[in-house]
C-alpha cells in the first residue's frame, strides 16, 4: 500500500512539475519489470534493452506533453507504461517483419552470446520455465507474467490489458492450465 502511494506521489510530481528526479525513481521501480515483459516477447537481449529504453522515453513524453487535446487521464504508472510497452513490441515486430530478419530463440541466445553457460546451468529451471512461457500464445504470456512474476493484481492487469477482471481471470486460468500441460511434457 505504501509502495503504491509512493508511486502515485512520484507520478503526480512528474505530471504536474515534469520532475525528472521523480521519473528517475519510477525508472528504478519499473525497469526490470518492463525489461522482463519485453524480453518475453522479443527474445533477444539487445532488442529488449532497446525497446525498454524507448518505452521509458515515450512514457516520459506522454506524461509531460500537453494533453489538452486528449481525454485520457493517467490513473496509474503501471497501466500506462505496460500499455506503451505492448505497443512498442507491436511496432518492433512490424519493423522486423519488414526487414525480414530471423528471430533467434532464447536457448540459442543463451548459449551464443556472452559467457553465461555457467549461469544457465545454475538457472536451468528458470530458463526452462521461461522457454515454456514463450510457447504460450501472446495473450497467455502476458497475464501469466504479470500475475505470477510481477505479482500484479487482477485489477492492475485488467487496466494494462484493457479487459474486464473476469475476462483476465478466465484467461489466466486457461493460460496456467496450458502451461501445466507443457511443463508435464518438458520436466
Amino acid at each position: 500500500m505504501r509502495a503504491q502511494i509512493t508511486e502515485k506521489i512520484l507520478l503526480y510530481k512528474v505530471i504536474t512539475k515534469a520532475d525528472s528526479l521523480a521519473y528517475g525513481k519510477l525508472y528504478d521501480l519499473y525497469v526490470a519489470k518492463i525489461y522482463r515483459f519485453i524480453f518475453l516477447k522479443v527474445r533477444t537481449k539487445e532488442d529488449a534493452e532497446d525497446i525498454t529504453n524507448e518505452v521509458f522515453l515515450k512514457t516520459w513524453q506522454h506524461i509531460t506533453k500537453n494533453k489538452e487535446d486528449t481525454e485520457e487521464n493517467i490513473r496509474s504508472f503501471s497501466g500506462l507504461i505496460y500499455k506503451i510497452a505492448r505497443n512498442s513490441i507491436v511496432d518492433h515486430y512490424r519493423k522486423r517483419s519488414r526487414e525480414n530478419e530471423n528471430k533467434l530463440g532464447l536457448l540459442e541466445n543463451l548459449s551464443e552470446k556472452r559467457d553465461i553457460l555457467k549461469q544457465v546451468e545454475i538457472n536451468q529451471d528458470i530458463a526452462r520455465t521461461f522457454q515454456l512461457l514463450r510457447k504460450l500464445k501472446q495473450e497467455y504470456q502476458e497475464v501469466v507474467l504479470l500475475r505470477y512474476t510481477e505479482e500484479l493484481s487482477i485489477k492492475e492487469i485488467s487496466d494494462i490489458i484493457g479487459k474486464k477482471p473476469t475476462a483476465i481471470r478466465v484467461t489466466l486460468h486457461r493460460a496456467l492450465k496450458k502451461l501445466k500441460q507443457l511443463a508435464e511434457k518438458t520436466f
Partner: peptide, 24 residues
C-alpha cells in the same frame, strides 16, 4: 514458484545491472 523466481534470480530474463545504470 518458478514463475515468481524469474524476477528474483539473476539471469537472462533480468536486465544487466550495468545496462540499467547506463540506460538510466
Amino acid at each position: 514458484k518458478k514463475l515468481k523466481g524469474l524476477k528474483t534470480r539473476d539471469g537472462r530474463v533480468n536486465p544487466d545491472k550495468e545496462w540499467v545504470i547506463k540506460s538510466k
